[in-house]
Design a protein around this nucleic acid. Sequence first.
DNA 1: CAGCTATTTGACGTTTTTGTGACAACATAA
DNA 2: TTATGTTGTCACAAAAACGTCAAATAGCTG
Lengths: 233, 233
Amino acid sequence: MPANILLVEDEPAIQELIAVNLTRAGHHVVRVSDAETAERMVREALPDLILLDWMLPGMSGVELARRLRADERTRPVPIIMLTARGEEQDKVVGLDTGADDYITKPFSPRELVARIKAVLRRRAPQVTDDPVEAGGIRLDPSTHRVSANGQSLSLGPTEFRLLHFLMTHPERVHSRTQLLDRVWGDHVFVEERTVDVHIRRLRSALEQTGHDALVQTVRGSGYRFSTQLESNT
Amino acid sequence: MPANILLVEDEPAIQELIAVNLTRAGHHVVRVSDAETAERMVREALPDLILLDWMLPGMSGVELARRLRADERTRPVPIIMLTARGEEQDKVVGLDTGADDYITKPFSPRELVARIKAVLRRRAPQVTDDPVEAGGIRLDPSTHRVSANGQSLSLGPTEFRLLHFLMTHPERVHSRTQLLDRVWGDHVFVEERTVDVHIRRLRSALEQTGHDALVQTVRGSGYRFSTQLESNT
DNA sequence: CAGCTATTTGACGTTTTTGTGACAACATAA
DNA sequence: TTATGTTGTCACAAAAACGTCAAATAGCTG
């Protein structure tokens, strides 16, 4: 289960150490040295998980975590705190800010990878029933209804789940494989091309209400739900 | 929704951590360090929820849960198990004893509060004796009567409870399993498809009075009582 | 522009899910 | 007891959704 991980750590040596190990574990790591940049990146494309150093120049890790938790859109992203001190107090405060786990330096790569795996798995069944709204589309899992500017539209179960997933992970590119895993389920044996077909069905449903640029194709990579127009060269 | 919570945890530090957070979340917390005392307190005054540590000196949490489940009076009190990391397999057993949920240490206060909220909501006795009215249908539990635009119609007991439940939880989609739990009872052994049949009987009763779109099918999910028309096109 | 690859699209057969009528078991009341 | 009504289950019918393919189209590279 490879994941996109955002590593926020100012000390180059540690950054390197962590990045190497995570990459070896199959994850895709993006490195950042300060909280401000990190915040921008998170808003740009939600990572699957954030590794956040406790102490950072400028805005601290704690502060960043708090800010991310304050925003509806970034709230669900799991955060693991990297803390230098092993004090009980810090742990409490750290978790209080909304971190999902903490790990005390120095730590073994093995442990880090294990923790990440645990957090990612724990996050998985975190299916929220909360309504999602973006780009004029409103999707409510509890009533199983989708409406576009008041006008309601009907989707098959799979299209519904697909749209739900895309809307809860907006602005991010999802490969066909990822979509199959997250929308269809880990164990299904389905052609990747099938995703295309469902994307198309979803699109044509959305188009009937005038929304036609929400589900975007990223050639060679996958699909993306975005309220921003596609960037053209 | 503040609740009375009984916290059974022997380790002072964790007890403190949890208590502080729950109190901050508006709950009233009573702390106890062993199962025996806990049992006495529960019998004395039923709490709204019990947070129960898996491992306890003397009688274990599991054992306590089992005993509470065995008694008619204490059975309905929801229990959330606190388990230490790495007891994955035990989770199953824990749920088996009748726990409503479990949470693995270390956990974030945020997560704990959320779980508690979820369990309390799930357990909330939302069935009252008040008459319900929606979509031209009026249902009165106290007189056990249903009327559609004045015209009264007769339903079997099961259809009555089914309609009652649907009307008191309108617009929401209910899976067959949920309906079995809430209408038939928690642990009845009935085929899921039986729900379909009763839905059909309910529908045909309603149709005789001209109401035919109230009970809607949501393919792949379940059924829904709604006054809004099903989305078309 | 040509050649190539990736994606879109429409069609189609299959599978899954739901609707329906019938029936036997059971309870209840006359 | 019989008569009446309710309930759970089944088998089959109907409907909807699904996955796959192949042809058409679009995008990229040189």
